[in-house]
Design a protein around this nucleic acid. Structure first.
Length: 180
DNA sequence: TGAGCGGCTCCTTATATATCAGCTTCGG
DNA sequence: CCGAAGCTGATATATAAGGAGCCGCTCA
């Protein structure tokens, strides 16, 4: 089974924003805005809270949530926050969707990554230990990428749905058990 | 020849994973 | 004063976003 460690979601609002003024009104430590460094304004509603990045064009990104509940409560809090500021008429957005689930898993046993690269198929894997210690595996479904480490620890990333990450991990487990 | 435009890359953020180099700090 | 230990930042993965900078191409 995989465990979610990070979810990236994005959405768009139905208003034009003056980030300079907004950042001044909100102030530290909730808002951070350095247009010379990056065009997005960062909002964080407390320590260890996930991050909201807002753009002039009304689009925004949520990063750092480790559950769907946390992601959606952050989104609601962000929309309510802008509604209270008078930026939004109603706490609603034009659209919102999850872009990427990052999950971890454990194969429960040390792995020989050189053998695994051959077993999984050289055309689907990249393993250059001098460049990076993990094996990069791209399943045929091509809807996510799996990083496999010699310890048996695994990272699944790039999935737009949790079910995709779960299915890819299960298929990896099944493939490995066929070789044993 | 130069202006303009399209396409591309990098920057930043979160997050797990592991391995290296290079640096600081600490004890004997 | 030197080795060891600890820490930091690079390596790679995905993904959204806007802006800066770069390159090549077309047209006047």
């Amino acid at each position: 089974m995989v465990e979610i460690v990070n979810i990236v979601g994005s959405g768009a609002l139905d208003v034009e924003l003056d980030l300079e003024r907004l950042a001044d009104d909100i102030g530290d430590p909730v808002a951070r805005y350095n247009p010379d460094n990056y065009p997005g304004m960062y909002l964080r509603f407390g320590e260890d809270e996930p991050l909201v990045t807002v753009y002039r064009t009304v689009k925004y990104i949520l990063t750092g949530a480790d559950s769907d509940d946390e992601l959606h409560s952050l989104r609601e809090r962000f929309l309510a926050f802008f509604a209270n500021l008078g930026v939004l008429e109603e706490p609603e957005d034009e659209w919102f969707s999850v872009q990427n689930y990052v999950c971890t898993g454990d194969l429960e046993g040390a792995q020989n990554l050189n053998a695994l690269a051959i077993g999984l198929g050289l055309e689907k894997t990249e393993y250059e230990p001098e460049q990076f210690p993990g094996l990069i595996y791209r399943p045929d479904s091509r809807d996510c990428v799996i990083l496999i480490f010699a310890t048996g620890r695994v990272v699944v990333t790039g999935a737009r749905e949790l079910e995709i990450a779960e299915r890819a991990f299960k298929q990896l487990q099944n493939t490995l058990s066929e070789y044993l």
